[in-house]
């Protein structure tokens, strides 16, 4: 357990939404939480979902898995540090969890040209009939490790380590510049 409270501060410039393009919209996702859950070899997504439903049904959110027996539990509500400690205390053996809300930064990229933009940086196939809504993948955008999740028809969420967020933010705008 950490010894001091974490300050969650946006890494982006003051008015980042002002940089949107007509066919591509890039926006930071400032609110919400990101918890990193590790499970032992027997842990399954089903068992974790049930667990979450039992101990913290009010948080909702979704699970995406970057690696076997690992999940990011991502939701849109604010979770106080006391509440996090409570949830942590109820976690059974076989699971471990850390609050990564301060350490992972999310951004939303959407619009009709979103796949053309992302194709410049990532090598995975994001075609609508290949990469379904709700699907996610841990991959790279350029040399930056990123978790890409499809949230709607032409909407993707990208999550990166905080220290890469501004770099990726600038890169996404370069990649989208031709659609201005």
């Amino acid at each position: 357990m950490r010894d001091f409270p974490l300050n969650i501060v946006s890494p982006f410039p003051a008015k980042p939404a002002a940089n949107g393009h007509a066919a591509v919209h890039i926006a930071p996702i400032g609110d919400g939480f990101v918890f990193h859950v590790l499970g032992n070899a027997g842990a399954t997504e089903g068992s974790l979902k049930k667990l979450i439903n039992d101990i913290a049904p009010e948080l909702g959110g979704a699970l995406c898995s970057p690696s076997p027996h690992q999940w990011f539990w991502i939701g849109s509500c604010e979770v106080s540090q006391d509440r996090f400690a409570e949830i942590l205390a109820k976690l059974p053996d076989g699971f471990a969890m850390t609050d990564q809300t301060h350490g992972r930064v999310r951004m939303a990229v959407s619009g009709v040209k979103v796949r053309d933009v992302l194709a410049k940086g990532t090598m995975i196939d994001l075609a609508p009939d290949v990469f379904a809504v709700g699907q996610s993948a841990m991959t790279q955008i350029g040399q930056i490790g990123a978790m890409i999740t499809r949230t709607d028809d032409d909407c993707f969420e990208i999550m990166v380590l905080r220290s890469f967020a501004v770099s990726l933010w600038d890169e996404l705008h370069h990649m989208a510049a031709e659609f201005k």
Binding site: P66, S67, P68, A137, M138, T139, Q140, G145
Partner: peptide
């Protein structure tokens, strides 16, 4: 090592 993906 799948460094850019699952890191396995």
């Amino acid at each position: 090592h799948h460094a850019g993906g699952c890191r396995r």
